[in-house]
Design a protein around this nucleic acid. Sequence first.
DNA 1: ATGTCAGCGCCCCGCTGA
Length: 260
Amino acid sequence: MKIATWNINGVKARIDTVLDWLKSESPDIACFQEIKSVDENFPREPFEDLGYNVATHGQKGFNGVALLSKRPFDEVLTRLPGDENDEQARYIEGVMSTESGVVRVGCLYLPNGNPVESEKFPYKLAWMERLHAHARQRLDLEEAFLLVGDYNVIPDPIDAKSPERWVGDALFRPESRRAFRALANLGFTEAVRSVNDDAGVFTFWDYQAGAWQKDEGIRIDHILMSPQAADRFESCGIDRFVRGWEKPSDHVPVWVRLAA
DNA sequence: ATGTCAGCGCCCCGCTGA
C-alpha cells in the first residue's frame, strides 16, 4: 500500500492540481496539510468520486489537515493531545484495517516557528514536545504507525541546498533539529534517509527569488515509520515533478510503499 | 539585491502567515 503526504497550500486554490496528482499516483492514503479551509467548506465530493473516504480537521484561513483513505476509517482522532487551549488545526490521525493488519497514520502540520524571537518559536518547541509524548504512547501500541507531514524542520545541513542561509531560522535551529532527532530516536525509521543519503533531496522550494529554478530547496516533509511499519517498507519517493506543474504548491508529495 | 502566493476583511487593496 502507498501512503503519501503533501502540504497543498490551500485546497481551494489547489483542487485541480491535487486531483490530477491523485489520479496519476493513486495513493491508498493521502495526508494533506495547509488545507486552509473549514470542515464545512472542504470539497469532499471530488475526492469521494475518486474512491476516497475523507476526514478533515480545518480552521478558518490558515493551517488545517486532511486524511484521505481508500479503505474506510476504523477510527479518526483530531487535535494533538496535551494542550486543551491550542486552537490551531495541525493534527489528524486515522486507523485503517488492511489484509496485513491495522495501519495507523498521523498527519501533522508542525508549526513554522518564525520569527524565533516571537512567541511562535516556543509554541513550535512545545508542540514538538506534545508530539513526542503522543508518539511515545502510540509506539507502545506496537502497530504499523506512520507519522507523516510537514515537519518544518531541516534535519541536517545536507537537507538544504544552501544550509548557511538557514542558520538562525526556526526550521534549522538546533532546538528544532534536536527535537526532531529525539522524536525519531524513540524508535522510528525516517523513510527517505533509510535508503538515500544523497544531497539535493528536497521537498520544498520557496515561491520567491526563483528558488525552484535555482533548485534552492530544503527537505522538511518527512515520513517516520514505527518498527512494525518499517518492517513492511518497500520503497519511498518524492514527487518532485509536481513542483514544475501549473499553479504548484511550494511543497511536493512524499510517499512510502509498504507491503500489502 | 530583488523576485511569491493564498486567504481574509472589505471594498477592488492592504494585511497576515508562510
